[in-house]
Write a protein that binds this DNA or RNA. Sequence first.
DNA 1: ACCGGAGCCTGTTAGC
DNA 2: TGCTAACAGGCTCCGG
Length: 270
Amino acid sequence: MPELPEVETTVRALRPLLVGQTIAGVWNDWPRHIAVPSLAELRFRVHGRQIEAINRRAKYLVFDLTDSETLIIHLKMSGRLSVTAQDVPADKHVHTIFCLENGQALRFWDMRKFGRVYLVQNTDAIFAKLGPEPLEREFTVAVLRGRLHGRHRALKPLLLDQTFIAGVGNIYADEALFYAGIHPTRPANALQAGEITALHAAIQKVLQLGIDREGASIDLYIKPDGSKGDMQNAVAVYQRTGLPCLTCGTPIERLVLSGRSTHFCPHCQT
DNA sequence: ACCGGAGCCTGTTAGC
DNA sequence: TGCTAACAGGCTCCGG
């Protein structure tokens, strides 16, 4: 399940392989992969356009193309991107391929077919509602405090809400609450000042750790070169149900909040 | 305005 | 043993 660190790792790996390259064509065997526009129009509009830059916004990969076209890819929970020679046979789970003029191809592997491709000239419709980028300088303790104010919702589902904060998913939400020492069911507006500071620090800490370790290869995520990340070896609570807390030894517990599995230490998180 | 839940998918796993 | 049903999860849409 690619979250901010996994998407960032993917962006960094793709950049040297794709920036400056020109798109020659699009192969697709599952048109619903293309959210907007139609497959036919996407083919027409990306043909001959060069990839000028690749960046990340929330969990989206953002490819700036020439002529103000922007190609956006969301990996959702099972998406993987890789760059290989065009003549490499496609795996059955590859549903979209961008062929390049240099003989290489960007392949979108997506076993569960939740991922989506967008091609737009104005990204506002896709990005307008997203919350702040948690690793940007603008995301201060005061900003977090302001966004928590007046919210009654439990913290875990709130951290997963992309309009509240962008890029955090199930793994890093659990990890952040653990390091902040906050129980996942605590209402957002019940946090003390010190807890908000701790939560802010914990969010940044776990996301940066995830980037430094090149993502968590827990479910289906692997890096574009096919190798695993290393963050799965550094999780404190995620999918560690029944195992001893790294801090106090108490068995990690699991509960379901808003339909999402949630892992926490009942002793350290209050 | 806010929030929870269904639905989209398919490989894996638990249970009969 | 072989089969089916439940499960996982990011996000959008719908209803309370």
